[in-house]
Structure formats: C-alpha cells, structure tokens
C-alpha cells in the first residue's frame, strides 16, 4: 500500500466534510468515514505516489510506503512543511536505519480544513 493514513493520528480534520487529503488526491481515492471520523485510502491500487495528500495533512498522519513488490517496507520518507511555508524538509530513513534530511525551497499555498462544493447543500465547518 503506497500511502497509508494512520488511524491513530487521523482526526478526520474534526468536522470537515472534505479534509485536505481527500480534496488534494488527483485520483479521488481518499474518502472520509464519517462514522469514525477518519479518512482512509479507499483505492490503493489506483495510487500514483504523488504525495499531495501527505503534504497537506495538518496532523502528519499519512505515511508513504514503497509498494512491497519494489523492496523493503522499512525505509521511510516523510515531508515536513516549514511554518513560513517557504521550505520543505524531507526526513529519509534507509533500510538500515540511517537517517538523512533534505531541505528544499518551495512556496506552499495555505489550505483550509474544509471547502464548499459548488451547488451542494452539504454543510461546511472550519471549526477546530
């Protein structure tokens, strides 16, 4: 499974109908289970490994795993957006546990926890 949302960390972005991870997936692969208030990747076989979902998660609850057929699941790669949104730092841990970090310039746009869908009656809640 390429992208995995840790249910222990995901808070469903509170009462958001459409949390950022769900909105930013270009394949419409993430859904929110409102009964438990958590998002999950519904269609892992359709994931492109493009990672916008990980970058916009305010809880950093989404993990990136290599599809197991390509190699060990032990290595990890996790992006952290800086507060000023001008840099992104990637924590990389290889299969032997060696850690490396990479800090790169960027220009991250602000993202709301929820967003109104055009012509829809569904509610919108930004409260945290």
């Amino acid at each position: 499974m390429p992208v995995w949302i840790d249910p222990d960390k995901c808070n469903g972005c509170h009462s958001s109908r459409q949390p950022p991870c769900l909105r930013m997936c270009p394949g419409d692969l993430i859904v929110k289970d409102h009964s438990v208030n958590k998002a999950y990747l519904k269609y892992p076989e359709d994931c492109w490994d493009c990672l916008p979902c990980i970058k916009v998660c305010p809880e950093e609850a989404i993990e990136f795993h290599l599809s197991y057929q390509f190699g060990s699941r032990e290595a990890t790669l996790a992006p952290h957006i800086h507060k000023d949104r001008d840099f992104i730092t990637w924590d990389a841990v290889d299969v032997r546990g060696k850690k490396e970090t990479f800090t790169i310039r960027t220009k991250v746009m602000k993202i709301a926890l929820d967003e109104q869908v055009e012509d829809s009656e569904q509610g919108l809640d930004f409260s945290i």
């Binding site: 990672l51 390509f70 790669l77 990389a92 290889d94 299969v95």
Partner: peptide, 23 residues
C-alpha cells in the same frame, strides 16, 4: 547524489524511497 535526491523530491519522491528501501 544529494542534488539528484533533492531534484526527485521536488517531482518524484518515490525514486528516493526506492533507493532507501533497496540500499
């Protein structure tokens, strides 16, 4: 090598994870 990894992180992060996972 670091430059290469950074370039991939801007576009195709799974390449870097592939190298990490396969040493």
């Amino acid at each position: 090598v670091t430059d290469l990894k950074k370039a991939y992180l801007d576009m195709y992060p799974s390449q870097v994870l592939y190298w990490l996972a396969n040493d």
